[in-house]
Simulated scan of single mutants.
Amino acid sequence: MIVRAFLLILWLPVQAMAQGFAGLGTDAEGFAVPTPNPVFDFPQDHGAHPDYRIEWWYLTANLTGPDGTAYGVQWTLFRSALAPETREGWSDPQVWFAHAAVTTPDTHLVAERIARGGIGQAGVTVQPFEAWIDDWRMAGASFDDLTLTARGDAFAYDLGLTANGPLIFHGDTGFSVKSAQGQASYYYSQPFYEVSGTLTLPQGDVPVTGAAWLDREWSSQPLADSQSGWDWFSLSFATGDKLMGFLLREDDGASFSSATWIAADGTTTSYADGAFAAQPLDWSKVSGRDVPTRWAVQLPDKGIDVTVTALNPNAWMALSIPYWEGPVTVEGSHTGRGYLEMTGYE
């Protein structure tokens, strides 16, 4: 009950005027907003941007155990500002929360942490890089070499990540448009991490290897008030090429799409609304609601016509902001693995 009350206090300023999924379509008055032609400053931009309302450091990993079992790992740190400033102590208006998960073909284990800024409980530093909340850490001498740790009641993980490719900028050089009305975010990724480490599960420790994808995004009003949720795909193909694509669903049944094709050498092609398509093929009853867990995905310009299937249809994040997030397999014109995130399914 205490945790629920604390969450209500944190989210009341947004939820009192909730528009778009999780209030992300509410007016951004008083906050900075993304503008076209961004000029990024690294490593500084790997850190926090407190004058923007919402920001995240979002990592997903497709992993394999010694016996060939597929696993998925999620580690996400969110920053949500009640005001565009920082202060020392409990009066700081920066709110931090984090989600962690391990998904297997049969189980989905999740945990959440919540913190207030200004007291050292959560934050991000850039040299050396460290993003943390309580004892959860994403840290390393640089953004290219990181360790990743988190734990919940039934799981933990300790992973090493090494990047073997460049940062990727989505949309127009990192300015990612989210609606026909022009809402946008700053959005870049590091989708080239190689991963090795250990999952600690109820049955014991499991050594794993695989690949990870880290998304960095910040904005103040990333959705239009008529957008109720999104379907986001990050797909890595056996060819070495990758695809990021998303649909933002409108209340009237229409959608807005965007995509980035990432060649194996790191060169990119960006696609505006309408070039990327995704249609549900099968639905699953998940946590009492119908959720699409098998999709037809197309990007005709690159010959992509694939079926994307959830490794575990029950990968529901039953947290303060509920959503579906889990690893997927890819079959069809291309084969591979990836991750799918779906929000706004009530």
Rank of each mutant, 00 (worst) to 15 (best):
D134V: 02
A163Y: 00
T147P: 00
L159K: 03
A150F: 02
A100N: 11
T173M: 09
Q121K: 10
I119C: 00
T86K: 07
P84R: 01
V95I: 15
H108L: 13
L109K: 07
P105Q: 10
R151D: 06
Q183W: 04
T125N: 09
G174R: 00
Q94L: 13
D145V: 13
V110D: 02
A111P: 09
F129W: 03
G152Y: 08
V195N: 01
P166Q: 01
W136K: 12
V102E: 05
A115K: 13
G165I: 08
M138W: 08
V195K: 05
W90D: 15
A111S: 15
D145K: 14
T200S: 14
F155T: 01
L146P: 01
G123Y: 00
G152D: 07
Y193G: 02
Q203Y: 02
E194A: 15
F169M: 10
W90P: 07
G152F: 11
L77H: 03
A163V: 01
A163W: 00
A122N: 05
T173N: 14
T149K: 00
F143E: 09
L148G: 10
F97Y: 04
V177Y: 03
L199H: 04
S185C: 11
S185V: 08
T86D: 06
P166L: 00
G152H: 10
S80D: 04
A98D: 02
D92G: 08
Q181D: 10
A115C: 14
F192W: 15
T125Y: 00
G140M: 10
T104K: 08
D134M: 06
G197F: 02
P191A: 09
S189R: 10
V177W: 04
